[in-house]
Computed example of a mutant assay.
Amino acid sequence: MAVFQIEYRSEILDLEYPVNVIYPDLSRVDKPDDTDIPVLYLLHGMSGNHNSWLKRTRLERLVRTTNLIIVLPNVNNAWYTNTQYGYRYFDALTEELPKVLQRFFPNMSKKREKTFIAGLSMGGYGAYKIALETNRFSHAASLSGALSFDGMLTESLDNLAYWEGIFGPIHQFQEQAMPLLESAELSDKKTKFLAWCGEQDYLFHQNNLAVEKLAEKGIEIDYSTSPGTHDWYYWEKEIETVLKWLPVGFKPEERLS
Rank of each mutant, 00 (worst) to 15 (best):
Y89I: 00
G126V: 05
K192T: 05
V71K: 04
V3N: 15
L26V: 10
F104E: 13
Y8T: 10
N77G: 04
N76P: 00
L59E: 02
Q84D: 00
K55T: 06
T35S: 15
S109W: 01
V63K: 04
E155N: 07
S183G: 04
E95N: 11
R61N: 05
F204P: 08
S52W: 01
Q174L: 11
E182G: 08
D34F: 01
P18L: 00
M46T: 14
P24V: 02
L26G: 14
D33I: 04
H44N: 10
A78W: 01
K251W: 02
E16M: 15
L203D: 10
R136P: 02
K244Q: 15
Y80P: 09
Y125P: 00
K213I: 13
L101K: 09
S10D: 12
N82Q: 08
Y23H: 14
K189H: 15
K192S: 12
S144T: 05
W79S: 03
P106T: 06
L68T: 09
W53D: 01
K129I: 01
E164L: 06
I117T: 06
L157G: 02
S257H: 07
G228W: 04
T65D: 10
M1Q: 12
G123F: 08
L72T: 00
A2V: 06
D33L: 12
Y89H: 12
L147D: 12
G249D: 10
D222W: 07
P252H: 11
Q176R: 14
K217G: 08
T81D: 13
Y89N: 07
T229W: 11
F250S: 10
Y23P: 08
A215Y: 11
M178N: 00
R136Q: 15
L181N: 04
L157H: 02
N20I: 01
F167P: 02
L181W: 02
P18I: 04
Y162G: 05
W79Y: 12
R64L: 03
T241G: 13
V242R: 05
E11W: 06
L160Y: 07
S27Q: 14
R9C: 06
Y41C: 09
N208V: 04
K99E: 15
S52G: 03
F250I: 11
G124W: 01
I37M: 08
M178E: 15
I239K: 09
E236C: 03
S187G: 12
A195M: 03
L72I: 02
P98D: 09
A146N: 07
K129P: 00
L101Q: 13
D188H: 05
S142A: 10
L246P: 03
G45W: 05
M1P: 06
K114H: 15
Y8D: 14
I37F: 04
F137V: 01
I219C: 02
S121I: 15
